[in-house]
Simulated assay, not measured.
Amino acid sequence: MYKLHPETTDDAYEVEALYDLVFAPGREALSSYRLREGVPAEAGLSRVARDEGGILAGALRFWPVSVGGAEALLLGPIAVHPTRQGEGLGGLLMAEGLAAAWAAGWPRVMLVGDYAYYRRFGFEHLSGVVMPPPTNPERVLGQGDWAGITGPVERRLP
């Protein structure tokens, strides 16, 4: 049994440690991290999952970006502790996070990931949306209102 809640500043250290464990410290070399530098995550949307003992089991963050001048959310990273994987926690984090994004009025969400995994959550390939290199365009996925939205993905500063 897990309790999900919006990420707070008190969670930040543990969440970063979880991301390092799951993705390795080199994760920050990915192009998606250039879009996150100096930009706070959407605190009301980012989620953490804790077990009955209060131990962090998973986390999901959202970041504001601009695509061809249009607002969007960049989902990620999403991580589940290795000892908790296979329990459906990633799907629960995804469902809760996306529900919060839609309820907050965000029109579109994107991520960089494996289509075979993320299509079950309603993500489709985004053609014409260009992530900073060296991102494989086949891994740029989205859901929501992407009609007519094309161009480079850029950071959105607060």
Rank of each mutant, 00 (worst) to 15 (best):
residue 47 R to T: 10
residue 33 Y to M: 08
residue 33 Y to S: 12
residue 76 G to Y: 08
residue 31 S to T: 12
residue 84 R to Q: 14
residue 80 V to G: 00
residue 58 G to W: 02
residue 72 A to R: 01
residue 67 V to L: 03
residue 21 L to C: 07
residue 46 S to P: 05
residue 33 Y to C: 15
residue 28 E to H: 14
residue 86 G to T: 11
residue 70 A to C: 10
residue 22 V to E: 11
residue 80 V to E: 05
residue 30 L to D: 14
residue 32 S to C: 15
residue 59 A to Q: 09
residue 38 G to A: 11
residue 21 L to Y: 12
residue 26 G to V: 07
residue 28 E to Y: 15
residue 89 L to F: 01
residue 66 S to E: 12
residue 18 L to V: 02
residue 61 R to T: 09
residue 61 R to S: 09
residue 76 G to Q: 14
residue 66 S to C: 06
residue 88 G to T: 11
residue 81 H to N: 03
residue 83 T to Y: 05
residue 72 A to K: 06
residue 38 G to I: 11
residue 78 I to A: 00
residue 35 L to V: 13
residue 35 L to R: 07
residue 57 A to L: 03
residue 76 G to E: 10
residue 33 Y to A: 08
residue 61 R to M: 10
residue 86 G to V: 13
residue 28 E to A: 15
residue 27 R to N: 12
residue 62 F to V: 05
residue 83 T to Q: 05
residue 64 P to N: 00
residue 35 L to K: 03
residue 75 L to Y: 07
residue 61 R to V: 00
residue 70 A to W: 02
residue 74 L to A: 11
residue 36 R to I: 08
residue 78 I to Y: 01
residue 58 G to D: 02
residue 22 V to F: 06
residue 80 V to M: 00
residue 58 G to K: 01
residue 65 V to Y: 03
residue 68 G to W: 04
residue 43 A to S: 05
residue 77 P to V: 07
residue 34 R to W: 11
residue 56 L to M: 14
residue 54 G to H: 13
residue 91 G to P: 10
residue 50 R to A: 07
residue 18 L to W: 11
residue 51 D to Y: 07
residue 40 P to G: 10
residue 39 V to G: 09
residue 71 E to T: 09
residue 76 G to W: 10
residue 26 G to F: 14
residue 68 G to N: 02
residue 80 V to H: 00
residue 54 G to M: 11
residue 52 E to H: 08
residue 48 V to T: 09
residue 80 V to K: 00
residue 82 P to I: 05
residue 70 A to N: 15
residue 59 A to M: 08
residue 52 E to W: 14
residue 61 R to E: 10
residue 61 R to I: 05
residue 22 V to W: 02
residue 31 S to V: 08
residue 49 A to Y: 02
residue 88 G to M: 10
residue 49 A to P: 04
residue 90 G to D: 06
residue 37 E to I: 15
residue 69 G to H: 13
residue 64 P to T: 04
residue 83 T to D: 13
residue 73 L to Q: 01
residue 34 R to G: 15
residue 46 S to I: 05
residue 37 E to W: 09
residue 58 G to T: 03
residue 35 L to W: 06
residue 17 A to M: 13
residue 32 S to P: 06
residue 60 L to I: 09
residue 38 G to S: 14
residue 34 R to F: 09
residue 58 G to L: 00
residue 87 E to I: 00
residue 90 G to E: 10
residue 75 L to P: 00
residue 78 I to D: 02
residue 54 G to V: 15
residue 90 G to K: 13
residue 42 E to A: 15
residue 19 Y to P: 06
residue 52 E to Y: 10
residue 34 R to K: 15
residue 84 R to I: 08
residue 92 L to W: 00
residue 45 L to S: 07
residue 69 G to T: 13
residue 79 A to M: 00
residue 48 V to G: 06
residue 31 S to A: 15
residue 64 P to K: 08
residue 56 L to W: 12
residue 66 S to K: 07
residue 71 E to R: 01
residue 33 Y to L: 07
residue 22 V to T: 09
residue 63 W to K: 02
residue 62 F to H: 04
